[in-house]
Every structure is written in structure tokens, then in C-alpha cells.
Simulated scan of single mutants.
Amino acid sequence: MTDQPTPARIPLIPTTLVALAVLVMIGLGIWQLQRRAEKEQALALMANNANLPAIAFPKLGADLDHYRFRRSSLVCLDTQFVEMVAGKARNGRTGYRAIMACRTGAEGPGAYVDIGVSPSPSLPEWQGGAVRGVITLKPTSQSIWNRMTGGAVVDEPLLIADAPAQGRLATSPPNIADIPNNHLAYAVQWFLFAGVAIIIYILALRRRNASKPA
């Protein structure tokens, strides 16, 4: 009587966990493909915004794709310094952008204003007033992981002033070419992660079964 080879056994719990992880990765890849199409529509909308008339400055929570690149104006009643971020002036020089929070009404801060670029991170001396400019987004830091997984980031509108504060250079206006559409790359990465996870698990199963006595 010949010995029959022992059939390979697949552990239930680890296999289930790996399968669920792979499904999540594939789902995230599909979601990124959908986001790519949405981003293309948003970019087309924003490209058209630059040709539209000026509008009232949007409030926090508005659908900012409908406002970005539109011209706007506001009256800054009083100010509070927020932050310095690296940036570029309209003439191409680099430096530090000064972003201020402005109170535009009786209910506290209502807008952020970029009042220009300086070569050093000196605190601005700007007391507010009437501001005209172009609407963009307030700079924010977001990790690659958050971008790949769609982590929640609250976008806030920012008005880049046409006329900078005294002693500063006008900040370079936003350019639609600078807005990335990386969703296809993120989708490919998720699909690759799923494929690599499957290959690693198959190899681990083969090693596990080969190490068992016949």
C-alpha cells in the first residue's frame, strides 16, 4: 500500500484576514479611480472659474471647487497673525508668505488673507482694510497616507491679495497647473499592494506546508 501525499492545508483565520485585506486594497484602488474622474471634472470647473466675474468671499464649509480661481474682495476689520509658509512672489522671488486671519463681521474671524511675500520670516505689520484678490486654498499639510486613503482634511478658502502689505511683494497667484491629479498613481499603488500581499501569502503557505512532515 503506497503512502498518499498529505493534502496541503490552508489555515482558515489567516487566509480570511489576508483576503479581507486584499479586498480592502482593491476597493481603495477602485475608489481612487473614481476620485480621478471627479478630480478631472473639478479641474475643468476651476479652469473656467478664472473667466467668471468676481463673487463674495466664500464661508468655511462651502464647496470650494466652485470658488477657486474666482476673483473676490472683502473688508478685513481687524487681524490676527496665523502663519508663515514658503512661497513665491509674482516676480519669481522666493520667500515667506504671511497669512492672516481677518474678522469680516461681528461674529469673529471670517477669512484668511495672504498679504504677500518677504525674504525673511518677519512678523507682518498689517492692520487690515479692503482687500481684492484671487481665491485659493489655505496651505495645509497632508501625509501621503492620508491622500491615498482619502483622510479627512478641512479645506479653508484663502484670498491672495493683489496689493501686498507694505514692505512685501505680491504673492504669485494660484496656477491650475500646480494642482496634482495623482489618483491614478494611488490606484495603481493599491492594486500593486494587493498583488504583493497575495504573492507573499502564497509563498508563506508553500513554505509552511513544505516544512510539515509527510
Rank of each mutant, 00 (worst) to 15 (best):
Thr2Gln: 13
Asp3Phe: 08
Gln4Met: 05
Pro5Tyr: 01
Ala8Leu: 10
Arg9Glu: 13
Leu12Thr: 12
Ile13Cys: 02
Thr15Ala: 15
Thr16Asp: 01
Val22Phe: 06
Val22Gly: 03
Val22Tyr: 03
Val22Asp: 04
Val22Leu: 09
Met25Ala: 04
Gly29Cys: 06
Trp31Gly: 01
Gln32Ser: 03
Gln34Arg: 10
Gln34Ile: 04
Arg35Gly: 02
Lys39Thr: 13
Lys39Phe: 03
Gln41Lys: 14
Gln41Glu: 14
Met46Glu: 07
Asn51Ile: 00
Ile55Thr: 13
Phe57Gly: 09
Ala62His: 03
Ala62Glu: 14
His66Val: 00
His66Gly: 06
Tyr67Ile: 00
Arg68Trp: 01
Arg71Asp: 05
Ser73Trp: 04
Ser73Met: 00
Leu77Arg: 12
Asp78Glu: 15
Thr79Trp: 11
Gln80Lys: 14
Met84Tyr: 15
Val85Glu: 12
Lys88Ser: 11
Ala89Pro: 13
Ala89Asn: 08
Asn91Leu: 06
Gly92Tyr: 12
Arg93Leu: 14
Thr94Val: 14
Thr94Pro: 03
Thr104Ser: 12
Gly105Pro: 08
Glu107Met: 09
Glu107Ser: 11
Gly110Asp: 11
Gly110Lys: 09
Asp114Lys: 07
Val117Tyr: 10
Ser118His: 14
Ser118Thr: 12
Ser120Gln: 15
Pro121Ala: 11
Glu125Pro: 01
Glu125Met: 12
Glu125Asn: 14
Trp126Arg: 10
Trp126Pro: 10
Gly128Tyr: 07
Val131Ser: 08
Arg132Ser: 15
Arg132His: 10
Leu137Glu: 12
Thr140Trp: 05
Ser141Gln: 13
Ser141Ile: 07
Ser141Phe: 12
Gln142Ser: 11
Ser143Phe: 01
Ile144His: 02
Thr149His: 08
Gly150Val: 00
Gly150Cys: 06
Gly151Asn: 05
Asp155Cys: 00
Leu159Gly: 09
Leu159Ser: 07
Leu159Phe: 06
Asp162Glu: 15
Ala163Asp: 08
Gly167Arg: 06
Thr171Cys: 11
Ser172Ile: 00
Ser172Ala: 15
Pro174Trp: 02
Asn175Met: 09
Asn175His: 13
Ala177Asp: 13
Asn181Asp: 09
Asn181His: 07
Asn181Tyr: 09
Asn182Gln: 10
Ala185Glu: 01
Ala185Phe: 02
Tyr186His: 13
Ala187Phe: 07
Val188Asn: 04
Trp190Ile: 03
Trp190Gly: 01
Phe193Cys: 03
Gly195Cys: 03
Val196Asn: 01
Ile198Asp: 03
Ile199His: 02
Ile199Asn: 05
Leu205Gly: 07
Arg206Phe: 05
Arg208Phe: 01
Ala210Cys: 02
Ala210Phe: 05
Ala210Ser: 14
Ser211Ile: 00
Ala214Ile: 05
